Amino acid sequence: MTSTSPSDNDRGCLRIVLAVPLVLLTLVAVSCCWTALTIRPSGSGDDDAHAGIVLACVLAIGGAGAVVGVWLLPSVRRVMGWWWVGPTVVSGVVSVIRYVGAG
């Protein structure tokens, strides 16, 4: 007979609780990355567009860093797989590339 321990039952609830901030921060990072990629300056003197790109990139990189920081906690890593941070890390890398290209 197989019995489940109480800690196994709690992991489902813990996963849901931990998923909320990770999903919200991922949405912030991905949407800011998308914004940085879709802003097109009208010329080399369009400082407002360049400032918008830089701001969107900084917010995306910050969101990605926050997700990775939360995921690096041992209690989070035990219940959340590495694929939870994959989209955020990709958006962070894309934002870094866009930031370097916009600067």
Score class of each variant (00 low, 15 high):
V67A: 06
G45R: 12
G43P: 00
A102E: 13
A49M: 08
T2L: 15
S75L: 14
L27V: 13
G103T: 13
T4K: 10
D47L: 07
L18F: 15
P21I: 10
S7W: 08
P21D: 10
R15F: 06
S3G: 05
R40G: 03
S31Q: 13
S75D: 10
G45I: 08
G52T: 02
V79F: 04
L59G: 00
S42F: 00
D10F: 09
A51C: 05
H50L: 10
S5D: 14
D48F: 04
P74D: 04
L18R: 02
M80V: 15
S5G: 05
L24C: 12
Y99D: 04
L24N: 13
A51R: 14
T38A: 12
R77Y: 01
L14F: 01
V68L: 15
G86C: 09
S75F: 15
A51W: 06
T35P: 00
V79Q: 01
S95C: 04
M80G: 00
V30G: 02
V23N: 08
V96Y: 04
R77H: 06
C33Q: 15
D47W: 04
T35A: 14
A56S: 14
A60K: 06
L22N: 03
S42L: 09
G43N: 09
G43R: 06
Y99C: 15
G65M: 04
G12R: 01
M80T: 02
V79K: 05
C32I: 02
V58F: 02
D47I: 09
L73V: 08
A36F: 12
C33P: 02
T88E: 01
L59D: 06
S91T: 14
H50K: 12
Y99S: 07
L25K: 12
S3M: 11
S7F: 09
L73E: 07
I97A: 14
G101A: 13
V17H: 05
I97E: 05
V17Y: 05
C57A: 14
L22M: 11
D47A: 14
S95T: 14
D10G: 01
L14N: 06
P74Q: 11
W82C: 01
V79A: 05
A66V: 14
D10Y: 08
G69A: 13
L18E: 06
I16C: 09
S31T: 11
W34G: 03
G103C: 13
D47R: 06
P21Q: 10
V90Y: 01
W83Q: 15
A36I: 05
D8V: 10
L72K: 11
W71P: 02
G103I: 12
L25A: 09
S75I: 12
L22C: 10
T35Y: 11
A60R: 03
A19K: 02
R11D: 11
V20K: 08
G65N: 12
D8P: 04
G101P: 00
D46Y: 06
S95L: 02
V58Y: 01
S7P: 01
L24K: 11
G62R: 06
M80W: 03
A49D: 09
T38D: 14
L72I: 05
I39G: 00
T2A: 11
V54M: 12
L27Y: 07
G63N: 02
S5Q: 08
V85G: 00
G62I: 04
V93G: 05
W82R: 09
V94H: 06
T26E: 03
A64M: 11
R98G: 00
G45E: 13
T26A: 07
L25F: 12
L73K: 06
A102G: 10
T2N: 14
L22D: 03
V20C: 08
L59W: 09
S95V: 06
